[in-house]
């Protein structure tokens, strides 16, 4: 399944899209934090994680192909951990033994991983590139950190397309057919692709320097007003995070 990197940004059409950009970003971050904080080895904790991911998914309503891609990627990344269960110290010696304590470990990795991915991707789909910029400039993040983060996001696209071009060139020049040609192309990649990317990064840093990108604080391009709905959503997501923390502290 092919999903264009830039196509994911701002592709969600859930009710959350109407909130201020900083509310969307902060809420996503709080819910992601809640998923990571909630104890995944208790029934209550797991339930909370599942509810957070599902509700946020519905609130952001990302395109089905993006959800399918996230779920497939999550399964590929996190399901193999279950294969390691017999090697864990808590694993019973026989098949009929109590596997629950041992299964709690890969289950924690799986549910946190999947829910974290779904929450982050859903958040990305309700933020366009410029929404993300606006959100970062409005949140109390140190200027240097927000400038670096914004450029990482912005330049990831550039590097993604650069890599796609290199992959296309490799395919055209016979590297996709395997054998000696593939080996020669692949072995030259670190000496060709890396300097190309470094050179590009240097030119971008020159441009940033020239245009005064990092000289002063991040500037806002639009004036957006925070409404009561934004405050309500932030309070709710804050409460969810607090609940997750409480479950973890009291091991419920």
């Amino acid at each position: 399944m092919r999903t264009d990197l830039h196509g994911v940004w701002g592709s969600g059409h859930g009710p959350v899209s109407g909130l201020a950009p900083q509310t969307r970003l902060l809420s996503g971050a709080l819910l992601f934090g809640a998923c990571m904080t909630s104890p995944a080895d208790t029934a209550m904790g797991s339930l909370l994680i599942a509810v957070i991911a599902t509700v946020w998914l519905m609130a952001c309503r990302p395109p089905a192909r993006v959800v399918r891609l996230a779920l497939s990627l999550g399964c590929v990344l996190f399901l193999p951990y279950f294969l390691l269960t017999p090697l864990l110290p808590d694993a019973p010696q026989t098949l009929t033994g109590d596997w629950l304590p041992a299964l709690a470990v890969p289950w924690s990795v799986f549910i946190r991983g999947i829910s974290g991915m779904l929450v982050s991707i859903s958040t990305v789909t309700v933020l366009s590139g410029s929404d993300f910029y606006e959100a970062m400039t409005r949140l109390p993040v140190p200027h240097l950190i927000s400038a670096i983060l914004l450029q990482i996001v912005h330049q990831t696209g550039t590097l993604y397309y650069e890599t796609k071009r290199i992959a296309a060139a490799m395919a055209v020049r016979g590297a996709a057919r395997g054998g000696v040609a593939a080996w020669r192309v692949l072995s030259s990649l670190p000496r060709v692709w890396l300097p190309r990317v470094i050179e590009r990064a240097e030119r971008v840093s020159w441009a940033m320097e020239l245009r005064g990108y990092s000289e002063s604080g991040m500037r806002q391009f639009r004036q957006t007003r925070t409404r009561d709905t934004d405050c309500a959503v932030l309070i709710m997501t804050g409460c969810v995070f607090a609940l997750a923390a409480a479950l973890r502290i009291w091991r419920i």
Partner: peptide
């Protein structure tokens, strides 16, 4: 030109010099 375009939206990139 791609190297010096630093913002996700055209109008933001053009107006940056003024906003700055």
């Amino acid at each position: 030109p791609e190297d010096q375009l630093l913002f996700p939206k055209v109008i933001d990139d053009i107006s940056f010099g003024l906003v700055r």
